[in-house]
Structure formats: structure tokens, C-alpha cells
Design a protein around this nucleic acid. Structure first.
Lengths: 187, 187
DNA sequence: GTCTATATAATGATAGAC
DNA sequence: GTCTATCATTATATAGAC
């Protein structure tokens, strides 16, 4: 074999470490708040390797975040299935570390370079799949209703989780949300 | 009278011009993207006066933006009234210049200094008034459903208005949204 | 493939003259 | 009450040695 797959002189492994660290930092701080220095430190690599492998901070953002902005995997099954899955997933009060591309979207949407990329990606891989999945009249209106509801829930539970919601209220919210989603999904 | 109310040597008038310019720039670029230099230029005043009158960029943000983050004025009347008013207001495809504190919220939420201020203000002057306005069971769940739906609509129509929605779909969306809101408001 | 050293360009903020 | 000049910091990005 040519090289140890985890050695410190392996371009592919290094790029992967950068990507993973970038996801976390972009998640926590958004595009503006994330610095290439912190990403490099968290990845345990030298700062210059980011530009070496990804060209620029924006290039890294494109590779690390954009591909994960995708609603399609959550849309399989009957409308009832989808409604239940989404309600369960988006009314979520668990810990919020790690990486969530939709959180990165909200925290980066203000940036003049990252914003347009995010909007285009969202249109192609979230709004469009949702519209195409629906049957019956007013597909765009119904998809918009669903997508905006989910977007608000991301803001509420993944970005401002400071405001608590007790178990009973959470269950009531899930019930009502699921009903609303099912109605919009079915037509 | 002591002084011309619009003269160039009037502290109150100068502070007011700074506030108005700050609202526009924070609206367009968010907290991170807004620079004190641009605010000063747009206000037609010297850069140093911002710190003179508001202490810091964050101090200016507090005075210019936070007081306008308030849902209460939109909550008067019957549930039907409120549902109709909100549906009309938040499914909005008009031009997006000017100043909207909820847009500033989304575009500034990632900042570690502005974010917590925005969340606290939102809790006290949007979520709490909404909860207190409701009657019947599961007030918090219903308020959350409403607030998150509205938040998503802000994102969709005021921050990413690039994605078009034709008149018929817009009307259908308004109908469905109004029905959902009325149901959550009534219990 | 990875590092040190540095260029370049912004930013928020302030001292002190007028 | 307002301005000029400037400081101190921090950011992305790159040239070139190893």
C-alpha cells in the first residue's frame, strides 16, 4: 500500500478532517462567525492547508455544507408516514451539537457570498423535491406551508433551544403539527 | 427656540439620523455584515459620533433594533381577526427594502453578542404575549406552532424573495395559512 | 504534503484638535 | 457638537522553505 490511511501525510485523510471540523464550526458560528483558524485548529492541521485543498473559505463551505442541505431523504413513504417522521424530527429538544445543514443555513443566510448559494441549493434540494412529491392542486402553496413551518421549527428548537418546553406541551405540539403536515401533504 | 431641529449641530437630530440609517443597514446585512462606517455614511454623519452617542456598535443595535421586535400590536381582536391579519401580512410578495426587526433577527441570530439579546427580546415581546393571548389548553404548544409558522414565512418571503410564487398559489397559501392559524388561536 | 512567515485589507474604537 | 488622524486587532490568503 502507498500510505497509511490515517497518517499525517495523506491528502485525502487531511481533507476529510478539515471537512468534519468545518461542519462543526459552521454549525456553531455560521459563515461569518467561523474562522479558518478555528477550523484548522479543530482539525489539527495547518491553516494553509484549507486554501491548499479547498481554494478559499467559501470553497470549503460549498464542499462541507451544501451537499447536506437536502430534504429528499425525509420524504419517502405515505403522507401519513412523512407527517409523522417530520413532526418527530423537528419538534426536538435534545442536545444540539454536531452538524445540521439547516442550522448552518439560518446562521449563514445573511452573508452575501454564502447566502445565494444556500438559497439556490434549498430551492433545488428542499422546495423542489417537496413540490414534486405532492399530488393534487396548489402544490406550491402546500409545499411552501410545509417548508416554512419546518424552517420555523429549526429556528425554535435547534437555534434558540434556550427557551424550554415541557413534555406535555411538546407532545401536544407534535400532535397538532403532524395533523397540519398531513393535511398539507395529502392535499 | 434653542436650535434648528434639523441643523447639523443638534445632538438629538443626529442621533435620530444614526438610528434610521442603522435600521436600514442592519436590515440589509445583519449584525455582522453591517459596518459602522456604512451606517455613518448613510446617515451622513461622522463615524465617531456613533460611539459618542451609543457607546458601541452593539449599543446602537440595542437602541435601533430591539424595541421594534414586538408581536403584540398584531394580536388585538378576535382569533379570526388575528388569523386574517397575520396571513395577509406574512404572505407578502412586495418589495423588501426598509426595516423589519424580524428580518434583522434572522440575519443577526448567529452573532454571539446580538443573538442572546434577540432571543430574550423575542421571548418577552413575541412568544410571551402570544401565549398570554390564548385561551384553553396547551397554550405553549399552540403559540409555538403559530410563532414557528410565522418565522418560517419571514424567511421565505422577506429573506429569500428570489423564489417566485404566482398569484393563485399565493392566495391558496393564504387560505390554508389562515385556517391553520385560526385553529391554533381558537384552541 | 506540510510548514513558517508575512502580505493585505478590513474592522471597531479612541485621543485630541477645532 | 463634530471632525481628522490613527491605533489595535483580526481576518483571509499566499510565497516560498522544508
Amino acid at each position: 500500500m502507498k500510505n497509511a490511511s490515517n497518517g499525517s501525510r495523506n491528502a485525502q485523510a487531511t481533507a476529510e478532517r478539515i471537512l468534519l471540523a468545518a461542519q462543526k464550526v459552521f454549525h456553531e458560528k455560521g459563515y461569518d462567525g467561523a474562522t479558518t483558524r478555528e477550523i484548522a485548529d479543530r482539525a489539527g492541521i495547518n491553516l494553509t492547508l484549507i486554501n491548499r485543498y479547498f481554494g478559499s473559505k467559501l470553497g470549503l463551505f460549498e464542499k462541507a455544507v451544501l451537499p447536506h442541505l437536502d430534504l429528499e431523504p425525509l420524504l419517502s413513504g405515505t403522507p401519513s408516514d412523512v407527517a409523522q417522521r417530520l413532526a418527530e424530527l423537528y419538534v426536538d429538544t435534545g442536545p444540539k451539537e454536531g452538524f445540521d445543514a439547516f442550522v448552518v443555513l439560518v446562521r449563514s443566510i445573511a452573508n452575501p457570498e454564502a447566502g445565494p448559494l444556500l438559497i439556490r441549493r434549498l430551492e433545488d434540494h428542499a422546495l423542489r423535491p417537496l413540490i414534486d412529491r405532492l399530488e393534487g392542486p396548489n402544490k406550491e402553496a402546500r409545499a411552501t406551508l410545509i417548508a416554512t413551518q419546518l424552517a420555523g421549527l429549526v429556528l425554535r428548537f435547534r437555534i434558540m433551544p434556550q427557551i424550554p418546553l415541557d413534555g406535555q406541551e411538546r407532545e401536544a405540539l407534535k400532535q397538532r403539527l403532524e395533523a397540519n403536515l398531513r393535511e398539507a401533504l395529502e392535499g
